[in-house]
Simulated scan of single mutants.
Amino acid sequence: MNMMENKNLLDGVDARTRLAGSNQMEILLFSLGTRETFGINVFKVREVGRTPHITKTPNMPRGVEGLISLRGNVIPVLSLASYLDLEDPPAGLGKTMMVAEYSKRTLGFLVHEVDRIIRVDWEKVKAPESVLAANQGLITAVIELNGGHLVSILDVEQILANAFGEAVIVDIPPARVEEETSVFFVDDSIVARKKITEVLDKLGVKHKHATNGAEAWTRLQAIAAHAQQMGTPLRDEINLILVDAEMPEMDGYVLTKNIKSDARFEGVPVVMHSSLSSEANRAMGKSVGVDAYVAKFDAEVLADTLRPLVER
């Protein structure tokens, strides 16, 4: 099949925008030729089809097979099997390619075959435990399907960091903030949490964090309850909340809806920070009430977005 023949698999994006706030996601299942099943958020996949000719180029990072020309654009192609260190990959591995968009970067992922799209509740998406160590931190979540079959969701941000290096944080001027100014952020990616921390440190604001939406909502409720008990404004403890869109157990859209519907958080801005950088995803964020939407990962843009919201 060619790109256009299999592109129908990914139709219906407009319908999927209604998932915002439903705490559901759609996953495209695929394999790398082993018994394990992997998944990727449909919103990040532009198309799927047979792998075109790949031009080998010198000095490519490990796992980057080369470059292809796709509709006038030259994009890198990565072998996911290489990053997961698969032993004895099957014949024909890499004949199928997924074209994905992450953090305003378009790239191809070589896989064995694509299976189907499934819709799952985020509450069934769990953070990995033993899987994490087994795959060098490249698995960001695990889903258990009916019958006990496991699906591993790849941490593409970590894969991109491994392949192309982490984003360099340039000199960011500190914000004009009071000493107690604090930001609460939540992100399930280790790479993202590290980079967010660097930006906040350079801005000169204190920060707390959580690793998934459910944990964040539990902690935020506890902070709000404490402020209420002490009779102090919540903004004295949290000046801004920064949320990721995709997270195990509760996504950023539901988390934002919860925050915006709780009067205790009135006046506390919510910024969505996501590798889902399309206009459709921005519209989804707006529909649940985010005050700003920032695509990952541009440290300067993130800092420029946060600065006026935390300065007094």
Rank of each mutant, 00 (worst) to 15 (best):
N2A: 00
N6H: 11
N8H: 10
N8Q: 11
L10C: 08
D14S: 09
R16C: 05
G21N: 07
S22Q: 15
Q24V: 06
E26L: 01
E26G: 02
I40E: 09
N41F: 06
R46N: 13
I54W: 06
P58M: 09
P58H: 07
M60Y: 02
P61Y: 04
V64F: 03
G66T: 14
G66V: 12
I68K: 08
S69C: 00
L70R: 13
R71C: 00
R71A: 03
L78H: 01
S82A: 12
E87Y: 05
P89D: 05
P89W: 08
G94V: 11
G94A: 06
M98S: 03
V99N: 10
A100N: 03
A100W: 03
S103R: 14
T106F: 00
G108L: 04
D115P: 00
I117H: 01
D121I: 00
W122K: 05
K124C: 00
E129L: 07
E129W: 01
V131C: 00
L132C: 01
A133L: 14
N135W: 15
G137V: 09
I139R: 01
G147L: 06
G148S: 06
H149P: 00
L150M: 10
D155A: 05
L160M: 15
A163M: 08
E166W: 04
V168C: 00
P173H: 11
A175E: 13
F185Q: 13
V186Y: 07
V186L: 08
D188L: 12
R193V: 14
T197D: 11
D201V: 10
L203S: 12
G204W: 13
H207N: 15
T211F: 08
N212A: 10
W217C: 02
T218F: 05
R219G: 01
R219K: 14
L220D: 08
A222F: 03
L234K: 11
D236A: 11
D236W: 11
D236P: 02
I238P: 07
I238C: 01
M247E: 05
P248K: 11
E249I: 12
Y253W: 13
V254T: 14
V254Y: 05
P269W: 09
V271Q: 05
S275N: 07
R282L: 04
S287M: 01
V294K: 07
L306M: 12
P308V: 12
L309I: 11
V310Y: 01
